[in-house]
Design a protein around this nucleic acid. Sequence first.
DNA 1: CGCTCGTGTTGCTCTATACGCAACAACCAC
DNA 2: GTGGTTGTTGCGTATAGAGCAACACGAGCG
Lengths: 258, 258
Amino acid sequence: MEVKNQEDQYLSSVRNALRILKSFSMDEPEKKVSDISTSLGLNKSTVSRTMATLASEGFVYKDPESKKYRLGLSLLSLSSIVNSNTDVYHESYPVLSRLVENLGETAHISVIDKLEVIYLQKVECNHPVRFLTHVGRRNPPHCTSSGKVLLAYADEGLVNAVLEQGLEKYTKNTITDPDKLLANLKEIKKNGYSTSFEELNEGVNSIAAPVYDYRGKVIAALSVVGPKQRIQSHKVQGFAKKIIAAAKEVSERMGYRG
Amino acid sequence: MEVKNQEDQYLSSVRNALRILKSFSMDEPEKKVSDISTSLGLNKSTVSRTMATLASEGFVYKDPESKKYRLGLSLLSLSSIVNSNTDVYHESYPVLSRLVENLGETAHISVIDKLEVIYLQKVECNHPVRFLTHVGRRNPPHCTSSGKVLLAYADEGLVNAVLEQGLEKYTKNTITDPDKLLANLKEIKKNGYSTSFEELNEGVNSIAAPVYDYRGKVIAALSVVGPKQRIQSHKVQGFAKKIIAAAKEVSERMGYRG
DNA sequence: CGCTCGTGTTGCTCTATACGCAACAACCAC
DNA sequence: GTGGTTGTTGCGTATAGAGCAACACGAGCG
């Protein structure tokens, strides 16, 4: 009868607070108590008291104008510490900068976290036409070039977990068939780079290559993103070559001796 | 007997979790359960369960190598949202870059939060000799140029709160006498800029000017920091002129019509 | 100007829950 | 092997936090 669940261990009020924090996004940077209450299915008073606690520690604050809550400055300090931990963050920056100058397109470094691809570092291009991405953004792994290259070199368990989660369709090009995805991953491993032609967003293409650490393990992906008008299929070879070279350089900075 | 305290309202387990998060720093980016337990005076089991909850939501993770906890990637996403909220963050960047190029020293934008100065934005200089600061770092207001310029234009309540908190001595130059600090603030307001000559760290000088918003209210400080060998007292006039000009430019980008 | 509606906060009660204790398990050093 | 850390887990109990409802507050409108 009683299912001993892992989740039974978790402190519910803490989990509520963390989920409230995570419910903020670029699209919804400010929220009322009742917004949160309905969207997370929590009682008004629970939310109210949780917000008061979060505010007392500076994790949120009440905007005096709109009287809504926004994320607070305590989070800023913490994220700098997160970055200072990850070596890739520092080592990749100069390499990305040069690549962006060379290709004229925005470049990212990303890793996989909880079945999602998350951007650690970004260097933007100067083109007026750009895409709104940001450090910390999360994307699905099965339809982004960075996600697929990470999956290609990941162990089976992770790939299975992604497949079990289901391959959501975003565009007509999104790969939703598990077998086709597996075939694609195989090919990616053979080529040493991955592509996404409008698999997540219409009109957006990207190319990615793996970054290795000192043990030869793939720990991140270096990707370049741009509109399909600028990243055309006949240019892929040339782009990929430079992206692979840049990824190799980051790898070497991470101690990789390939 | 019973003192009705504001703090009685706060959810204690949530507050524990938030304090645990905030206990991480650049100096101590990874911690064991018992470290946290002793430093925050919480029971081992309490910490253990709180950490499990934090980990389940991606706010921390256990490093497989060291078996210690580190801050997690969930915080990255959130801090990007914090930045996207603050206009100063975006508007100041190009101005800071030019100033850094011109002066050859690191520049910051900072605001005051909970009686501390916090860096929102930073552009580093190329000098090999630099100081380890980072976005999100917190410093005391009474012995930094940014802090003092913010206090100079702040309302009386804030200044009193800082004075009540006590003026801790960091170096022989730190102003610890309330009257002297008030006199200094008055002078800063007259000059339109503030200085700190080794008031927080030995060998480190800084100069700051106020940034205004569209209502003419001081909302941030623009500061330049460097070693005393490079920021000498006879150069202050020249530096200050350029810093004030840069701060004015940021202000204008914020809608200030002075 | 008063009315109502939507919203956030606060007493109060009761139960779920998070804490503390202690035992256990896992690991390291020696 | 042993002794010393350290992290996790059961368990019972005190209590803290969720839910309800009442209230306070302000905005919008007739």
